[in-house]
Nucleic acid binder design. Structure first.
Lengths: 129, 129
DNA sequence: CTTGATTGTACAATGTACAGGTACAAGGAA
DNA sequence: TTCCTTGTACCTGTACATTGTACAATCAAG
């Protein structure tokens, strides 16, 4: 059971293949997947996630294009050595802007500012570990 | 210059009309736009943002459906008085879940956890005032 | 009151993205 | 060699974002 922390959330407004890409990239960045590790074949992971294997193949190809994976027929999917990508220079501003928009959306939905602030701090705490 | 803080970012995986909605809602919630204010005609704003005026019209309609705007032909776009609706009972969980998704997305993009945590705390601070 | 310009709306056409179906190609194993 | 495993190619259907075009409403000028 190579990838236990991987599930597709159909309620999320994000395509399945992109959810797979993000989840895998997170494992790659965090070190849960290391160079030399082998990922399951497209059909196996697809069966596990209940999507079509072409969807998994698209995710694998996207990560291969980023340099994370080495795809070869019959030999499976290998994690390549690669250092974490550079954060874009304006990352901080973009994160801040997106957060402002999200907060506005929640406030417009009537969620009390105190509750929003509590969740923001909890999310920040969760990052420390 | 009616809306200086409004630009479409084509690198973002979010449709243009939704970027317009989010940016305008931010101004509405924050008070930068108040009841009685007038927004530019769809064609003017579209020219400014370099999109088709129907794209702007879609954004205006979405905000009108939320109760923020009053659209009438020839009379332009007026900001309506609007009180916040009741927060749904599971608001807290939904906020927490959305934040987890966003944090994962940012980490997967290579943004350092410390930077994300800093922005989360800053956003929480910004809510106190 | 008529005319014309302004402004939002309706709707079809087009392009694009995603997911799935099917057939194929490569290449290691028996 | 032969066969099975595994990734790839290509096509289709569907949904949706964006645009082009025509139209409807309504205000102002005369």
């Amino acid at each position: 059971m190579p990838l236990p922390h991987l599930r597709i959330d159909p309620t999320r407004h994000q395509p399945a293949y992109r959810q797979i890409v993000d989840a895998l990239r997170l494992m790659l960045v965090s070190g849960a997947l290391r160079a030399g590790d082998r990922l399951p074949p497209v059909r196996d992971l697809a069966l596990d996630l209940r999507v079509h294997f072409n969807t998994v193949a698209a995710a694998y190809r996207a990560l291969a294009a980023e340099g994370w994976l080495d795809l070869r027929r019959r030999r499976g999917v290998l994690v390549r050595p690669r250092k974490a990508p550079e954060a874009p220079p304006d990352a901080s501003e973009r994160v801040a802007r997106r957060l402002r928009e999200l907060v506005a959306e929640w406030r417009a939905a009537g969620i009390p500012p105190g509750m929003i602030a509590r969740e923001l701090r909890a999310a920040a705490e969760g990052l420390k570990r």
